[in-house]
């Protein structure tokens, strides 16, 4: 089954999840809420048939959650604990929003994203730049991989042990290729009339469906519930 979700809903999802993970979970109720929200992108990933990332994320998150519950308290000290805290902190705090963002980026086509941005009346500057940022992370990873390979082939591992050289050897070639890709990208965009002073039409029709409304409702309610629980209005 293919579930189609509007880009605007995905944006809202990123927004809601980053608010929720920022609020520390203490009581069982907040823990449950937070875990529940974390499950949403997971389920969506399964719908998209991305089983391996979903599984990897579940394992990482489960291990971190169990470790946090069993071993870490505010009294523990020492190097091992510091590393443990680091690992769990990164996973528990960042992974939910990272996986949500990853899901949104993976499943949104760029024209859908632009159409959604246009419907929300975002200025061109923000929407175009944001689209480029979203698309550029994989490119950077790819280019960086190629640079590392090239360096390995020539037997340069860590820039001869100098931190400055290490940065220089990696960043300069990366910048070279990124600037070139940028030029090509602009040329392609201008050819397709991105800079034209008219209102662009879009080939993709955006519709808010039942799934969107459900997601919206669930996220809004859980965010509100978490904030109420946290501020202690109810208890």
């Amino acid at each position: 089954m293919k579930l189609h979700i509007d880009p605007r809903t995905k944006l809202f999802m990123i927004f809601a999840v980053s608010i929720i993970v920022m609020i520390p979970a203490v009581s069982p109720a907040t823990w449950a809420l937070r875990t529940g929200v974390t499950l949403i992108p997971l389920v969506l990933l399964l719908f998209e048939k991305k089983y391996i990332p979903a599984l990897a994320f579940t394992v990482l998150y489960a291990v971190a959650a169990v470790l946090t519950l069993l071993f870490i308290s505010s009294e523990s000290t020492g190097v091992l604990y510091a590393l443990l805290v680091g690992y769990c902190g990164i996973i528990v705090q960042f992974m939910p929003s990272v996986i949500t963002a990853w899901y949104a980026i993976k499943t949104t086509k760029i024209d859908e994203f632009m159409a959604a941005m246009q419907k929300m009346h975002m200025p061109d500057g923000i929407s175009v730049s944001l689209a480029v940022v979203m698309r550029f992370f994989p490119t950077i990873k790819e280019e960086y991989g190629s640079i590392s390979d090239a360096m390995k082939m020539r037997g340069i591992l860590f820039g001869g042990g100098k931190v400055g050289k290490m940065l220089e050897y990696r960043i300069i070639p990366l910048l070279f290729s990124c600037v070139n890709i940028g030029e090509e990208l602009s040329a392609a965009a201008v050819t397709r009339g991105l800079g034209a002073p008219v209102k662009r039409s879009s080939i993709c029709e955006l519709k808010i469906g039942a799934a969107d409304i459900t997601l919206f409702a669930v996220l809004t309610v859980s965010t509100a519930a978490l904030i109420i629980l946290k501020t202690g209005i109810v208890g």
Partner: peptide, 25 residues
């Protein structure tokens, strides 16, 4: 500002964020 500028901004923001994230860890 034209499209070209927006794309430049996007690319450099992406590079900057990767660096910040690597060191931020």
């Amino acid at each position: 500002l034209g499209v070209r500028d927006f794309i430049t901004v996007g690319i450099f923001t992406a590079i900057l964020m990767v660096i910040e994230f690597a060191f931020g860890m």
